[in-house]
Simulated scan of single mutants.
Amino acid sequence: MAKDIVGMEFDWFAVDKDGNVALFATAGAGPVPEQVFASLAQHDELAEHIPVAGWGSSQVWNSFAQAGLFAYDWRDAIKAYVRVAEPTQQLGSSLAERLRASSLPRLAVSFPLEHEVRLPVEPIA
């Protein structure tokens, strides 16, 4: 539940209206769609298939981009997720199918066009 992750870094995935996939990093305060909490095991399983390096550094964003994902990081000062990386290549077809067939939240935005994403959910308090 949302209250269980307050103050903790928590990453979640979403698909945009065009089928692009993004990782959202909460920085301990960003809002998370309730749908994510209903499918945590699926989020964890999908995350295991994404080759990521550079944990704990800004290089992690490049890692997600190289895996074919957009990446957004929460900025509390503006109450929005800000794009910090965009794909440098396409998602592998197997991973793309898994992500798109999953129950990930679908957002009515286009990640290539959105530098900032504000969710219609209340921030974690």
Results as ranks from 00 to 15, higher is better:
25 A>C: 07
18 D>C: 03
44 D>S: 14
17 K>P: 00
16 D>R: 04
103 S>T: 12
43 H>N: 15
71 A>T: 07
2 A>W: 02
68 G>A: 04
58 S>L: 15
23 L>Y: 00
68 G>V: 07
52 V>R: 12
52 V>K: 04
115 H>I: 15
104 L>F: 02
90 Q>V: 07
54 G>I: 05
33 P>A: 02
5 I>H: 13
98 R>I: 00
107 L>C: 06
8 M>A: 15
100 R>E: 02
80 A>Y: 01
90 Q>F: 07
31 P>M: 01
67 A>Y: 05
92 G>Q: 10
39 S>V: 12
73 D>Y: 08
34 E>N: 14
59 Q>G: 13
110 S>R: 14
1 M>N: 11
115 H>D: 14
71 A>C: 06
102 S>V: 04
119 L>M: 09
118 R>S: 12
7 G>C: 12
76 D>S: 12
17 K>E: 11
33 P>R: 11
13 F>Q: 12
60 V>H: 00
110 S>C: 09
52 V>I: 08
91 L>Q: 04
99 L>P: 02
24 F>G: 01
94 S>P: 00
22 A>E: 03
16 D>V: 08
87 P>A: 02
81 Y>E: 02
66 Q>F: 02
65 A>F: 11
29 A>Y: 10
47 A>E: 13
26 T>S: 10
99 L>R: 00
33 P>C: 03
105 P>K: 00
111 F>K: 05
69 L>N: 00
18 D>K: 09
107 L>V: 14
90 Q>S: 09
4 D>S: 10
56 G>W: 01
113 L>W: 13
64 F>C: 00
22 A>T: 05
70 F>E: 01
16 D>F: 14
110 S>V: 15
93 S>K: 08
120 P>Y: 09
29 A>V: 05
98 R>D: 14
117 V>L: 13
37 F>L: 05
64 F>I: 00
92 G>A: 02
125 A>R: 05
91 L>V: 06
110 S>T: 10
17 K>Y: 08
61 W>C: 00
70 F>D: 03
52 V>N: 03
83 R>T: 00
114 E>D: 10
12 W>S: 05
68 G>I: 06
33 P>G: 08
39 S>F: 04
39 S>I: 13
112 P>W: 02
35 Q>T: 09
101 A>W: 04
2 A>E: 12
40 L>P: 09
113 L>N: 11
4 D>E: 08
68 G>L: 00
27 A>S: 11
97 E>R: 06
74 W>E: 09
100 R>W: 01
36 V>Y: 05
44 D>Y: 15
93 S>P: 03
98 R>A: 14
25 A>I: 04
22 A>N: 06
11 D>V: 12
87 P>F: 03
37 F>I: 04
83 R>L: 05
57 S>G: 08
23 L>C: 07
114 E>R: 15
39 S>Y: 07
117 V>A: 07
7 G>K: 10
30 G>Q: 06
98 R>H: 11
117 V>D: 07
85 A>L: 06
45 E>P: 02
102 S>N: 04
65 A>S: 11
122 E>Y: 06
95 L>C: 04
32 V>Q: 01
73 D>A: 15
11 D>G: 14
123 P>E: 13
1 M>T: 13
31 P>H: 01
59 Q>N: 14
78 I>M: 11
9 E>C: 10
26 T>P: 07
22 A>V: 04
112 P>M: 02
51 P>K: 12
54 G>D: 03
